[in-house]
Amino acid sequence: MRSPLSQDTADLTSRARVRDAAILRFASDGFDVGLRAIANDAGVSAAMIVKLFGSKGGLREACDEHVFAVVRESKTEVLGGQGAPGAFIGQLARMEAYRPMIAYTLRSIQAGGEHAREFIEHMVADALAYVAAGVEAGSIVPSRDEEARVRFLLGATLGTLLIELSMNPDPKAIETGEFWDRALSRLTLPALEIYTEGFLMDRTLLETYLLYIPDPPERAAGTVA
């Protein structure tokens, strides 16, 4: 699996080096940061960034694409069936390397606007693909409405992290290991409990809801009766 951000800038092309520097800077300071700050981090000129990416918008698109690719690959590795627990533990061990990607995602959502909407829709589309792979592999229970479930799960996960960020009075908290240790510890166990063991002791509320809605979806193949 690829490294989310290279630890050896000497091995990177100028384009990849600038992209990685931009992900780190956007994750830290948001998207109002200027090209000169990113150029300084990457060891190039602002003119070189324009030459490589055309504009700041083009640079951000390249950052988006890289973040999407890393998230898609990591989720597929964990949810793809055999070896998933080992892959999950391995990713926990590498979590520090993933923090800039998660922080970049949170900043993208915080920014709002059309770009944020497109970013979220892309995440939904990618999630539908890797969840479908997990269903096919037998590691995920099918859903009556897969898109609705994916949107809920993304909202629960990212919403939890956004709340943690919003509740922290330190504007630079997102850069600290303390913030991420606390935020991920509050997220991981309850999420895995709900995903694995469920929450309600019986099906009464679900069955009532399915009777209530005008056109209940068919039971997904493979779900427990």
Rank of each mutant, 00 (worst) to 15 (best):
V50L: 05
V50G: 04
K51N: 09
K51V: 01
K51D: 06
K51W: 01
L52W: 01
L52Q: 11
L52G: 02
F53Y: 12
F53R: 03
G54M: 04
G54C: 06
G54Y: 03
G54K: 04
S55M: 04
S55E: 05
K56Q: 12
G57E: 15
G57T: 12
G57Y: 03
G57S: 13
G57R: 09
G57K: 10
G58D: 06
G58E: 04
G58T: 08
G58F: 03
L59H: 05
L59N: 11
L59C: 05
L59M: 10
L59K: 08
R60W: 03
R60N: 07
R60D: 09
R60F: 01
R60A: 14
R60K: 13
R60Y: 02
R60Q: 15
E61T: 13
E61S: 12
E61R: 15
E61G: 03
E61V: 10
E61Y: 02
A62P: 08
D64F: 04
D64W: 06
D64N: 14
E65H: 09
E65G: 05
E65K: 13
E65R: 14
E65C: 02
E65L: 12
E65M: 08
H66N: 06
H66D: 09
H66L: 14
H66M: 14
H66Y: 07
H66K: 12
V67K: 07
V67G: 09
V67D: 06
V67I: 13
V67R: 05
V67L: 03
V67E: 06
F68H: 14
F68D: 14
F68C: 07
F68Y: 15
F68R: 14
A69C: 07
V70C: 06
V70N: 04
V71L: 12
V71T: 13
V71D: 11
R72D: 15
R72Q: 13
R72P: 00
E73L: 00
E73Q: 04
E73A: 11
E73M: 00
S74Y: 00
S74C: 00
S74T: 10
S74G: 04
S74A: 15
K75W: 00
K75L: 08
K75I: 00
T76N: 01
T76C: 03
T76K: 01
E77P: 00
E77H: 10
E77A: 11
V78F: 00
V78N: 00
V78M: 10
V78A: 05
V78P: 01
L79Y: 13
L79M: 11
L79H: 07
L79C: 04
G80D: 05
G80C: 02
G80A: 05
G80K: 02
G80F: 01
G80I: 05
Q82E: 15
Q82V: 11
Q82D: 15
Q82L: 11
Q82H: 12
G83H: 09
G83S: 09
G83R: 10
A84E: 13
A84L: 11
A84H: 11
A84W: 09
A84N: 13
P85Y: 02
P85V: 12
G86Q: 15
G86A: 15
A87Q: 13
A87Y: 03
